[in-house]
Amino acid sequence: MAESQNTLAVEVRTEFGKGAARRVRRADKIPGVLYGHGGEPRHLTLPGHETMLLIRQSNAVVELAFEGESHLALVKDVQRDPIRRLIEHVDFIAVRQGEQVEVDVPVHVTGEPFPGTVALQETTSVLVSAEATHIPESLDVSVEGLEEGAVIHATDLTLPSGVKLIDDESNIIIVSITVPRGEVDDDAEAEAGEATEGGE
Rank of each mutant, 00 (worst) to 15 (best):
A2G: 08
A2R: 10
E3C: 06
S4R: 13
Q5A: 15
T7S: 14
L8T: 02
V10C: 10
V12D: 09
R13L: 12
T14I: 13
E15C: 11
G17H: 03
K18W: 05
G19H: 05
R22K: 12
V24M: 08
R25F: 10
A27N: 12
G32S: 06
V33M: 04
L34S: 05
L34C: 05
Y35N: 01
G38R: 03
E40I: 06
E40A: 14
G48F: 12
H49P: 10
L53I: 05
I55C: 02
R56D: 08
R56M: 08
R56S: 08
Q57I: 06
Q57V: 09
A60K: 04
A60T: 07
V62K: 07
V62W: 05
E67H: 11
E67W: 10
G68M: 09
G68L: 07
S70A: 13
S70I: 08
H71Y: 10
H71T: 08
A73F: 03
A73P: 00
K76R: 13
D77A: 15
V78Q: 08
R85S: 11
R85V: 03
R85F: 11
L86I: 11
L86Q: 15
I87C: 07
E88R: 15
E88T: 15
H89L: 06
H89I: 09
D91Y: 03
D91G: 04
F92K: 05
I93K: 11
A94V: 03
R96M: 09
Q97R: 15
G98R: 10
G98N: 11
E99P: 01
E99Y: 06
Q100M: 14
D104R: 14
V105M: 04
V107R: 00
H108A: 04
V109N: 03
T110H: 05
T110W: 02
T110S: 08
G111W: 05
P113K: 01
P115R: 07
G116E: 10
A119W: 02
A119P: 03
E122K: 13
E122S: 11
T123G: 07
S125F: 06
S125Y: 07
V126C: 03
L127R: 15
S129I: 07
T133M: 12
H134A: 15
P136G: 01
S138G: 01
S138C: 01
L139M: 07
D140R: 02
V143L: 00
E144N: 04
E144C: 00
G145H: 03
L146N: 04
E148N: 00
E148S: 00
G149L: 01
G149T: 02
I152C: 04
T155W: 09
D156I: 03
T158K: 13
L159T: 09
P160A: 02
S161E: 15
S161F: 13
V163H: 11
K164C: 04
K164M: 11
D167L: 05
D167T: 12
S170V: 12
I172Q: 14
V175P: 01
I177M: 11
P180T: 01
R181Y: 10
V184H: 01
D186L: 15
D187C: 05
D187K: 15
E189N: 10
A190D: 04
E191I: 15
E191V: 15
E191M: 14
E194A: 14
A195V: 11
G199M: 14
